[in-house]
Design a protein around this nucleic acid. Structure first.
Length: 430
RNA sequence: GGUGGGGUUCCCGAGUGGUCAAAGGGAUCAGACUGUAAAUCUGACGGCUCAGCCUUCGGAGGUUCAAAUCCUCCCCCCACCA
């Protein structure tokens, strides 16, 4: 029915593409059959975060369009630390940490990409990097690199001009990443590398190396750095990064992260972080006022389903409805979305703490509980919050910081506490 | 290795003997306004047994009634020179 779009077109339309090397030849390459492409992930932490989501989604799109994505976990390069676009040297991590982190990342990528039956590959560049010998490497690989050119690379500029400088080990990073690309082109006929815009220099270096050593034409795509419309780097909140690991960022919080995005970001984020068809996303641009909140719910729903699965999304959605009210989503909007249109449910996914009933029989001061339960980071913090009228007990403002919280405040064995407008926590009496 | 300049509360950055828990800005948090938005305004912003007390100004000592501020040693960073 609809004429099939090439992946490159799809990625462009959805806002993934910042820059491409040889545009036309690349689309010809991608439309000409099953291609293999890769993106590298740094094993700096045991979990990926929302900042890596653009890369992950891009790989997923590739797979959905019949190509074979490779997720390359930098077990070798992780020991070095990529200086590209960074103002400070990253602390060097140990082999042990790399191993742990790599396993975590592997697990997460599997949620987004199907690694069965050669549909995608997950590799570790430690496999070929760790056995490298210095002299042969210099002779065979190093000879292809011009220091003059490297110095001029945008990715190094920041550091070269900074007070901190650039160490030799970091300067070498570009060679290693180029070497990765070369290996992948040889082993898997992978001729497309993608990455964040800060990776441009590394990607181009790889393309050159592949050409010189293999006489093959390779390609690159970079993604824009995604910032919120208020200019903050995507995925950072006051609490730090938003992780994909449900242990670090529970699905309810993950859902909340998306619901709380800026009005101006909704459509853009939907295109990037969901698989909803663009026609449906276009509608968002016409929405105003409260209607946008429904769109945010759809965004949050879809993103949570992708990252954590339907059940977790449902629990998060229902909890949000219980706390903030259910959004109205006309059937005509987002018809592809699986978001429940009429569900009302419990608040099970709201963070909670089991609490000893006996302790509450004589009452505990609000300050103490707020601090204890993690709603505030210290008692002083809790006192401040409460003094400023930011503490709520069952949705009623707490008048004094030392007001007692009692067993009698419970309904169905639960007491609902709230800090500010959005942070809920329940006490489950036992 | 030499010379000079630095290391201040989450970040930037003032502060050169008491009036300093430390100016100002940013970030953050709360309140008002709203749509679980943005912008704006108001307030808060080390900890605690909170009108008081305790711990902070790279580290360790010292001078002093009193030190972020003065002295000694040490650690780290930067610039220029070698």
């Amino acid at each position: 029915m609809i004429q099939k779009m090439g992946v490159l077109e799809i990625l462009k339309e959805r806002g993934f593409v910042e820059a491409v090397t040889h545009d036309e030849e690349l689309s010809a390459y991608l439309d000409g059959g099953r291609a293999t492409c890769y993106i590298g992930f740094d094993p700096t932490a045991s979990s990926l975060h929302v900042g890596s989501l653009v890369c992950i989604m891009a790989l997923a799109h590739m797979q959905r369009n019949g190509h074979r994505p490779i997720g390359l976990v930098g077990g070798g390069t992780g020991l070095i630390g990529d200086p590209s676009g960074k103002t400070e040297m990253r602390k060097v991590i140990t082999q042990k940490e790399v191993d742990v982190n790599r396993a975590g990342i592997r697990k997460q990528l599997a949620r987004f990409i199907d690694f069965n039956e050669d549909k995608a590959l997950l590799l570790d560049n430690g496999e070929w990097l760790k056995g490298l010998e210095y002299i042969p490497f210099l002779r065979d690989i190093g000879r292809h690199f011009s220091v003059n050119r490297m110095i001029k690379a945008e990715s190094y500029k920041m550091r070269i001009n900074s007070d901190e400088g650039l160490t030799f080990i970091e300067f070498n990073y570009m060679l290693l990443q180029a070497y990765d690309f070369m290996e992948l082109s040889q082993r898997y006929d992978c001729l497309l590398q993608m990455g964040g815009s800060d990776q441009w220099g590394n990607i181009v270096a790889g393309i050159d190396l592949v050409r010189r050593t293999q006489q093959k034409k390779a390609f690159g795509i970079t993604f824009p750095l995604i910032t919120t419309s208020s200019g903050i780097k995507m995925g950072k909140t006051h609490k730090g990064a938003v992780w994909l690991d449900p242990e670090r960022t529970p699905p309810y919080e993950y859902y909340q992260f998306w619901v709380n995005c800026d009005d101006a970001d909704v459509a853009r984020f939907m295109a990037l972080f969901t698989f909803l068809p663009m026609e449906e996303i276009e509608q968002v641009k016409k929405m105003e006022g409260a209607m946008l909140n429904s769109a945010k719910a759809v965004l949050a729903w879809e993103a949570t389903v992708i990252a954590h699965g339907m059940d977790a999304a449902k629990a998060s959605y229902e909890a949000a409805c219980a706390m903030f009210g259910a959004p109205e989503i006309p059937d005509t909007c987002f018809s592809s979305s699986t978001i429940p249109r009429s569900a009302k449910g419990g608040a099970d996914a709201v963070p909670g703490t089991a609490y000893d009933r006996a302790a509450l029989d004589k009452g505990i001061a609000a300050v103490d509980i707020f601090a204890e339960v993690g709603l505030c980071k210290s008692k002083s913090d809790a006192r401040r919050l409460l003094n400023q009228g930011g503490g709520y007990l069952n949705d009623e403002r707490i008048a004094a910081f030392d007001q007692l919280i009692l067993t009698s405040h419970a309904t169905d064995g639960e007491i609902l506490l709230r800090a500010g407008k959005k942070k809920y926590h329940k006490l489950i009496l036992k």
